[in-house]
Amino acid sequence: MDNQTYSASDMCAPGKVSLRQMVKSLVWLAATCALYMVMFWLVKRHPEWSPGWRVLATLTPLLPGVFYLLSLLRSFRAMDELERRIQLEAWVFALAGTVVVNAVLNVLNANGMGPAAYPHGLQIGGVYMTMYLFWSLGFAISRLRYR
């Protein structure tokens, strides 16, 4: 294929990062989330557990979380230089966008005009969601830029 247009499958193609690697990352992420929910439920249902056990159960999801991070790093290393550039731009966009959104919320809250849902700015869940949204947007923009 020699022309400069790309099909939808090309845009989704992971380049030098194998599909297997991406699936592996997603499996570790799913395991982390699932274990987090299970442990959250268990700790809430068993207030009789000793503090040690409660801490251990709460921190258990960190284990698949570490494997998820390692898997992400492996994917990053497997990327070619343009893909790394695209990812870097997407992450910078995500970070900057999240900081701006949080700053706006904090300024609005300080002046008593903040949205009722965010009285203390973005909470940790909000930060993850906002970062993910900005990362997706940044990734799409950057990908189109080098298309």
Binding site: M1, A13, G15, K16, D80, L82, R145, R147
Partner: peptide
């Protein structure tokens, strides 16, 4: 093809295209 060159250089076809179009 761009794909052939990408394989020889161990980069993606998108990278070859971006270099050829002088975007990267």
């Amino acid at each position: 093809s761009q794909g052939d060159l990408g394989d020889k250089l161990d980069v993606s076809r998108q990278t070859i295209n971006a270099i050829e179009t002088e975007k990267y």
